[in-house]
Nucleic acid binder design. Structure first.
Length: 434
DNA sequence: TCTGGGGTCCTAGGACCC
DNA sequence: TCTGGGGTCCTAGGACCC
């Protein structure tokens, strides 16, 4: 981590730059026939999920994350296109290079957006408004994409400003006009306010950021919890001490696979988890990292989800070890989460819709240590977890065996069949480090 | 009609230690 | 006999972001 050592300034020296409808804009850049038309990247009129929508499609209410059939219903002329995912990474990197010309203090927070601290650059390039305008022109002319920029005294204000600037705009919030700018805006524009928080606030008659700023922090903390209440209260009052920092190391590595609606058979679970474990473990090894805590998430048909986790005595990054641990946790989750055999509500078969593996508690580990073979007393062996944990695992494994057959679970599955869908381009993109 | 994939952070209870 | 208080770690769930 590196904190930019720029001097503290009272001016709007923090910029938030955010590419507009990024995936959709790239598609329209690559294929001129799509320009000006409502398009959706990903999904289809029959199913799947829309990953991104062009502004022409957003005008009809189409949004990212929406099922394709719903999007087609809202916008009958919607054009579904397959993504060009390698192009997204390439073009976004180009944009970040342009931003980096304005200041070394660039904090990339996703593929398509970044914070910049330009307090050290104003003597070279002029005031933040000029820098922001110049960056927008360069990104448009050199890369071909529309980008919106907000400039303000704090990160939160800059981010809100870039949202207000969309599409394809620039908004600079001068310090003396911050309240005037924020007060009428809906609370949903604030970072950290999602559907649940928005509803809770609405129930209290709080709709705008101005409303929020007038609410006592004790009342907000009671309504939203200590951390969220305190943070939102401070942000509404423009108290945001966060600095622009270069990106730190990831705290977890994970992968998931949606399955539609499938019977939780030993074969399916083993195949999917083997695949997920391979993806997660190979990424950890590639980064020279290993993790102690393994978390498995099982989502049942009907979207209810259960997680089970286990913290080992030492970090792991071996595919097989991760697969073993994940398989035990998955059956624990399936059996517990569904009621289990003999329990009220327990059924003969279970339908699941998603499996996920995540590894956290990461530590740096050199390749040579990662590839050591497991010895009987090796602390990385799941069997050396504490007695209570092992007992719980044995219980759930026994229950799974009793229910699904002797071969349902094992410490060392003899064959790990490849299964599930082929990793698609989107997944490969999502796995890339920014 | 049926809902992706990758993350971060917070909370609350319990175990455990001193 | 009957028992404090603080700190840390682990686990499970949930809200949120892009």
């Amino acid at each position: 981590m590196f904190e930019y050592a720029g001097r503290v300034s009272d001016g709007p020296t923090i910029l938030h730059a955010d590419l507009d409808a990024f995936y959709a804009s790239v598609e329209q850049l690559l294929d001129p026939a799509l320009r000006g038309r409502p398009i959706a990247v990903g999904g289809s009129a029959r199913g799947g999920v829309v990953l991104a929508a062009s502004y022409e499609a957003k005008a009809h209410g189409v949004q990212g994350g929406m099922p394709g059939w719903r999007a087609a219903q809202l916008c009958p002329r919607l054009v579904f296109v397959r993504g060009h995912f390698d192009q997204y990474q390439r073009l976004a990197d180009q944009v970040m290079d342009v931003l980096g010309d304005a200041t070394p203090a660039v904090q990339r927070i996703s593929i398509d957006e970044a914070f910049l601290d330009v307090s050290g650059s104003v003597h070279l390039f002029g005031p933040p408004a000029v820098i922001g305008a110049a960056l927008r022109v360069r990104v448009r002319s050199e890369v071909g994409l529309p980008i919106s920029i907000g400039a303000a005294r704090t990160k939160h204000l800059a981010k809100v400003a870039s949202q207000v600037a969309k599409p394809d705009g620039l908004v600079v919030v001068e310090p003396e006009r911050e309240r005037e700018f924020l007060d009428p805006l809906p609370v949903a524009l604030m970072w950290g306010v999602g559907p649940v928080t928005q509803q809770r606030l609405a129930d209290r008659g709080i709709h705008t950021i101005g409303d929020l700023a007038h609410e006592p922090s004790s009342s907000l903390e009671h309504l939203l919890g200590r951390a969220v209440g305190a943070r939102l209260g401070a942000l509404a009052l423009n108290e945001d001490p966060r600095r622009v920092v270069t990106s730190g190391r990831a705290r977890s590595v994970g992968a998931q696979s949606a399955l539609g609606r499938r019977q939780a058979t030993p074969e399916l679970v083993r195949a999917v988890l083997g695949n997920l474990a391979e993806r997660v473990a190979s990424r950890m090894r590639a980064k020279g990292r290993a993790g102690r805590t393994v978390t498995v998430r099982v989502r049942f048909a009907g979207m209810r989800a259960v997680t089970r986790s286990l913290t080992l005595g030492a970090p792991i990054a071996a595919t097989l070890t991760l697969t073993e641990v994940a398989e035990q946790l998955a059956w624990q989750a399936i059996v517990d989460g569904d009621g289990g055999p003999g329990r009220p509500g327990g059924k003969e078969s279970v339908e699941i819709s998603l499996l996920a593996i995540s590894v956290s508690n990461l530590a740096v580990q050199h390749a040579i240590q990662l590839e050591l073979p497991l010895q009987p007393e090796d602390p990385r062996r799941p069997g050396s977890a504490t007695g209570a944990a092992r007992w719980a695992l044995d219980q759930s494994m026994d229950a799974a065996r009793a229910r699904f057959g002797k071969d349902a679970v094992g410490y060392l599955p003899a064959t790990l069949r490849r299964g599930g869908g082929v990793p698609d381009d989107f997944r490969e993109l999502a796995e890339k480090d920014l």
